[in-house]
Design a binder for these strands. Structure first.
Lengths: 218, 218
DNA sequence: ATATTTACTGACTATTAGTCAGTTGTTGTG
DNA sequence: CACAACAACTGACTAATAGTCAGTAAATAT
């Protein structure tokens, strides 16, 4: 009996339709100015139905966050897949992260939003769990690629891979965050192109990880 | 005639009293669960009065953000003041940043909150301006200390000071952010003490900036 | 004594997240 | 087919709360 399965597919589809509508509305007006009625109208559903699929406005936004994270992760695997050596994969991931923030600013915004407001969540712990699961998955991926680099000898470090992964991830997130901030709010006092800052950062980091003997010349 | 002056002092005092009350309430219950009526009650004032001093709940929270930033900046100058050499001052600032995040987690939380939600601000541009002013001030301070280090020869770098300041600030912010996140939401998969991660980071960075010939042995 | 300015009040309004009793349509059963 | 059981959906309603504003009180100036 395929009825059950079809029902589940349709339910999944509805969930996606709602997320599509929510993206449309949230990305257009910003989260705080968007109402659940706006989303309901865009989805051509009643507000009540939204709450059958998402328990709160914030959880709906978390759904968008998850889409963003999935997209980012996909860009990471694609980028890493284009290289053989560990160090090149790590570089490619760094670049992909930055590209993601430029190509999907609204998803990036959603990620930053939760980064800054999970600390205020007193609510639903299931939601928080879901949020952290995404983060861990990416950390694990970075860790694996670092391990590859250490194994193939293109990355040299005194640190445990696990720690290094956290440090690198934290660093690059912070650098991209500040670049987004500058780009969003330009300041005539700043003499450089914010985009160049990222190249500087990558160059800066390169020195710390690369084993010059093993690296391909480019 | 000192009446005008006294009035201004009293007004400043009221503003501070309101901020005290707001801290008490927001830090206790978290921003989203706190109401303006709660704050009014804690301040022993009517809600209307709050709005004579702050235009919105968010602006009130921004007032707390500013107090936090001032505290942080103060810790930076104190920390830097305890050293002679540029590189030591920079290290001291890095440590002070981390100490700040641990000693004043609620102020730190406020800073993170705005970091993640300015991107959503469609509102009051005066408020955004105020927010960015704080950030610039700290960046300027870091830049000055870096310049000192370059001048006294304890810091060596190929980059422009301005860019280096942004990179370092972004990096360290990101690392502290991820440490806070891990600390707040411990994970048995993580084998290390999140606090050690910061030491690792500082060690990691040290290698990039220090001129070994010039450094004091410790 | 009286006018003017300043600080404050709290009842009120508007908005909106979230609920729930009821409707509609689909699937399974005798 | 008739009818029961179930699932998906609806939208009017409630509760909570940010923000307002006409009115009061108290200090200051004339």
């Amino acid at each position: 009996m395929g009825v059950q399965e079809r029902r589940e597919r349709e339910k999944e589809q509805r969930r996606n339709d709602i997320l599509d509508a929510a993206e449309q509305v949230f990305f257009e007006k910003g989260l705080s100015l968007s109402t659940m009625d706006d989303v309901a109208e865009a989805a051509e559903l009643s507000k009540g139905t939204l709450y059958l699929y998402f328990n709160s406005k914030q959880e709906l936004y978390l759904g968008i966050h998850q889409r963003g994270f999935a997209k980012m992760h996909e860009m990471f695997t694609t980028a890493a897949g284009m290289h053989k050596q560990g160090v090149d994969k790590i570089r490619a991931i760094g670049n992909a992260y930055y590209e993601f923030s430029k190509k999907y600013p609204d998803y990036y915004k959603a990620i930053m939003y939760f980064e800054g407001s999970v600390l205020d969540f007193t609510s639903d712990s299931e939601m928080i769990e879901l949020y952290h699961r995404d983060g861990k998955q990416v950390m694990q991926f970075v860790q694996n690629v670092l391990s590859e680099g250490i194994d193939d000898g293109t990355i040299v470090t005194d640190f445990q891979v696990e720690r290094l992964a956290f440090i690198l991830w934290g660093q690059i997130s912070g650098v991209i965050q500040i670049i987004s901030k500058i780009s969003q709010h330009p300041d005539k006092q700043i003499q450089f192109n914010p985009f160049d800052l990222f190249d500087d950062y990558m160059q800066f980091m390169g020195k710390l990880l690369i084993n010059p003997g093993k690296e391909d010349k480019s």
